[in-house]
Design a protein around this nucleic acid. Structure first.
Length: 416
RNA sequence: GCGGGUGUAGCUCAGUGGUAGAGCAGCGGGUUGUGGCUCCGCUGGCCGCGGGUUCAAUCCCCGUCACUCGCCCCA
């Protein structure tokens, strides 16, 4: 038996880095006043089809969709924004012009060919700021994303920014792209030929050399911006400059989901290989209406947690963490070993220390070795002699100093 | 979904058409109750899985599964 393709067990050895990551996330989101939301792992397939877009890869070929026993088409969530918006409308979280600052952490599912940093079940952390259309809102989200990188010690990241303008400007832009590329249809890659119909913006993003060459002369959205789009984007950029947050403009940055407009961004890292995006996001001002809610401008991002951990591990040497604080050692006689069990239990009741004892009837030497390997701070020896005299030996492993103490008084046991 | 690579002890990897090795880890010991260094010894492997060729396959062929690199796309 094996785990399902593209799914992974997170083992004890790696769980501490997950805990640390989640801890950082909770601290940071609290600093910005974001609150957690936990939505179901399944939604009606409709939720994602309507929001993410029928033509996108996610909906077109990556969703885990299946009929339940009642015949409803359910989908294992491939991303979170759609679910969070659905929940926000259902529970009226943005009623009376309220701002909602939300974050989420959890598993997501996409049926894709696995690769490094790409699994069928993966985990995302994301934030959504709902109810504000201002460039200040964009900057809050971008700053949060930036701070996350800093908190995690990820230096090698790059923040790329672009604007997708308003839907109507983008529509004109698409039309001019189609017009331009249609003239060179025979020179386009197979992928881009189909993109010409499905999503012409994506041609700009192609890695195919021929496509790249053609893209150089292609119309630019930045030249077609209306005042609203331009003012908004410029305001975002100048605030980022003021904050000293580094970014680079990438006019080819096109997000794969239909619901974005205005500011879009991606954070990439060179330590990831081919799947180089740590996270991305953007403004989605019209998603609420798509779901039948009232107009609510929003911006948010999502980060791949596996990818964050990969990038983090590539740049930081992990600290060896202690698996327990105290090792209580007994040996040779049953009196010794049962005294150990009693004493360890007393200690656990009276202190917050984590305490380990041997359960394999091993020698003193073997237990000492294990204590050393576990990074234990104090060893307590209750051998046959100590067991009969009611004493114990407390030894500090780093210094090698040891003292004899009474078992019946655990106060100041670890002090000299 | 498409193309390439890999799959041998817990881990990192050697290896040969006649059913296997190293280093690390683990365990035990170095005179009788003390770890880290060192020395000695020991345990441990359906050589991914299924089929084929062969007297014989871990090694050759086919399939399959998983991982991995790239494409697509994204987190």
């Amino acid at each position: 038996m094996q785990s399902i393709r593209g799914t992974k067990d997170i083992l004890p050895l790696e769980i501490s880095s997950w805990h640390a990551l989640e801890h950082t996330i909770r601290l940071l989101t609290a600093q910005y006043g974001y609150q957690e939301i936990r939505t179901p792992i399944m939604e009606y397939a409709e939720v994602f089809k309507r929001s993410v877009g029928e033509e996108t890869d996610i909906v077109g070929k990556e969703m885990y969709t299946f009929p339940d026993r009642g015949g409803d088409a359910l989908t294992l969530r491939p991303e979170s924004t759609a679910s969070v918006v659905r929940a926000a409308i259902q529970h009226n979280l943005t009623a009376q012009q309220q701002i909602a600052r939300l974050y989420y952490v959890g598993p997501f599912f996409r049926y894709e060919r696995p690769q490094k940093g790409r699994q069928r079940q993966f985990h995302q952390f994301g934030c959504e700021l709902m109810g504000a259309a201002t460039p200040e809102a964009d900057v809050e989200i971008l700053t949060l994303a930036h701070d996350l990188m800093i908190s995690l010690g990820i230096q090698s990241y790059q923040l790329q920014l672009n604007t997708l303008a308003t839907p109507s400007v983008r529509q004109q832009f698409k039309a001019s792209l189609v017009e331009y590329f249609s003239a060179f249809q025979s020179e386009l890659s197979e992928d881009s030929k189909s993109r010409l119909i499905s999503n012409p913006l994506r041609i700009l993003d192609s890695k195919h050399p021929g496509d790249k060459a053609l893209s150089v002369q292609a119309p630019s959205l930045l030249n077609m911006l209306d005042n609203e789009s331009k003012d908004h984007f410029d305001a975002v950029l100048s605030m980022l400059d003021g904050l000293g947050i580094p970014y680079s403009l990438n006019p080819r940055l096109v997000r794969g989901l239909d619901y974005y407009s205005h500011t879009v961004f991606e954070i990439t890292s060179t330590s990831l290989g081919s799947q180089d995006a740590l996270g991305g996001g953007g403004r989605y001002d019209h998603l609420f209406e798509h779901f039948g809610g009232k107009h609510t401008p929003c911006i948010g991002f999502g980060f791949g947690m596996e990818r964050l951990l990969i990038a983090q591990a590539a740049e930081n040497t992990p600290e060896i963490q202690r698996k327990a604080d105290v090792y209580v050692i007994g040996f040779e006689t049953s009196e010794s070993r049962s005294a150990v069990i009693r004493f360890a239990h007393t200690l656990r009741m009276n202190s917050k220390k984590s305490i380990i004892t041997d359960v394999q009837n091993r020698s003193l030497k073997a237990q000492m070795k294990e204590a050393d390997k576990l990074g234990i701070e104090h060893v307590i020896i209750i051998g046959p002699d100590e067991a009969s005299s009611g004493t114990c030996i407390v030894k500090h492993l780093k210094t090698g100093m040891q003292y004899t103490k009474q078992q019946n008084n655990t106060d100041g046991l670890f002090e000299v």
